[in-house]
Design a binder for these strands. Structure first.
Lengths: 216, 216
DNA sequence: GCCATAAGTCTACAGGCGTATACATAATCG
DNA sequence: CGATTATGTATACGCCTGTAGACTTATGGC
């Protein structure tokens, strides 16, 4: 995120003027690659905040400092842009780290921390939750998740039916994101974070070492 | 193109067509209460299938056999209609039955059964999942859930922090609905239902009787 | 300096959205 | 039977959507 794309007001596609626009933010020099990246970054954030159907290409483009048509020029369509955004959102990060018992604990703590009321509230799960109401977006998200996180998580989980247990683990993660950050139920929002993390960890543990005794 | 809105053909025998045209919705006698109920039922189904933002008032009205304006006449606005639909969707049913260990088992089995690929795939959780991307809908859903299911579930759960644990339980339920029915990950769709139910039950159990065995 | 061309913008279209106003029809009641 | 009123429809408005084609501007090579 080197290029500071602050939320500047439109660099003069404004109606009247020939756009002298002593742009407060230095207008980016014409650079296809950089513009593409700016659009993509704007898309990831916008899709995460409002969901696939909840944001228009004009808003995404404006936040990237360009006009809507560049989206179609660089990505083909809004849907194609969404595919790229899903890839960006899911690819880089390791959703859950560690393995075995460490995995359960670290994931629970990270989950509770990242869904805190004062946190950034960004990330791939939020993008998923707010986009899957559109069937085409849901299919894109499914493919992205299976490709990027589910397989990797299943490997680190190991054991029988690793893929099924990985998806179950992701279900709980998504559910907590949903109830805590999207729906915003009070009981979860106001819960003590340490205690909440321990409870989530216990549920994770039931999956991680399901064969052995589930002694906490 | 498509010849006229044949949803309601003139009641008179005039059309002369020998085709009986078995109207999908037999023209109902003018009855405000019945019409209101028809709209509401149509809304619950439509909001469940496509989410709050994913369906228009014209479609909801058409499925109820009326025109869109009746929605505004009887409910005031699309948003008010959604409030009523949320109430209808969440109110009557007991989301999870039983108490204690029975609760964990019964809920897990019901959840897995209702999210099966060949099931109806209706119900309040689907309505929630597909609607919360809209912030106003999310707030309505939050209120409806807390009013109807969370409180009742917390009472049946008992124990410390019942409300928090109830919401956590609902998180897992919602997450499984999400991954299995909305996103449609293969690992969960193809999973053996008995085994899957047992795993979900184990996660529920970590919440239900956490005070007893698992020292915290 | 000029110019070909990449990079970006403008205008427009066809359609959907929620909803307000005006109108038409069927049912009830004196 | 005729009039009144609840019930439902038709039309339209203003706004927004994704996208296509034509147009403008900056940039690098000569």
């Amino acid at each position: 995120m080197t290029d500071g794309d602050a939320t500047q007001e439109g660099p003069g596609p404004g109606s009247g003027g020939p756009g002298k626009a002593p742009a407060p933010t230095a207008r980016r020099r014409r650079d296809a690659a950089a513009t593409r990246e700016a659009i993509l970054a704007s898309a990831v954030e916008a899709f995460t905040r409002h969901g696939y159907a909840g944001v228009g290409v004009r808003e995404i483009a404006a936040r990237a400092g360009v006009t809507a048509m560049l989206i179609n020029r660089y990505f083909g369509s809004k849907e194609k842009l969404f595919e790229q955004a899903v890839d960006v959102a899911f690819a880089p990060r390791t959703v859950v780290g560690g393995s075995g018992r460490t995995l359960a604990r670290a994931s629970a703590e990270a989950l509770v921390s990242r869904t805190a009321p004062d946190a950034d509230r960004l990330g791939p799960f939020l993008l998923m939750l707010r986009s899957v109401s559109d069937p085409r977006a849901a299919e894109i998200v499914r493919a992205g998740m299976e490709r990027h996180v589910a397989r990797d998580l299943a490997e680190r989980l190991g054991g029988p039916d690793a893929r099924e247990r990985a998806d179950l683990l992701l279900s709980l993660i998504a559910g907590v994101w949903l109830m805590r950050s999207v729906v915003g139920t009070r009981a979860l929002a106001e819960a003590d974070e340490t205690r909440l993390a321990r409870r989530v960890e216990a549920m994770f543990a039931a999956l991680v070492d399901e064969d052995g005794s589930a002694g906490s």
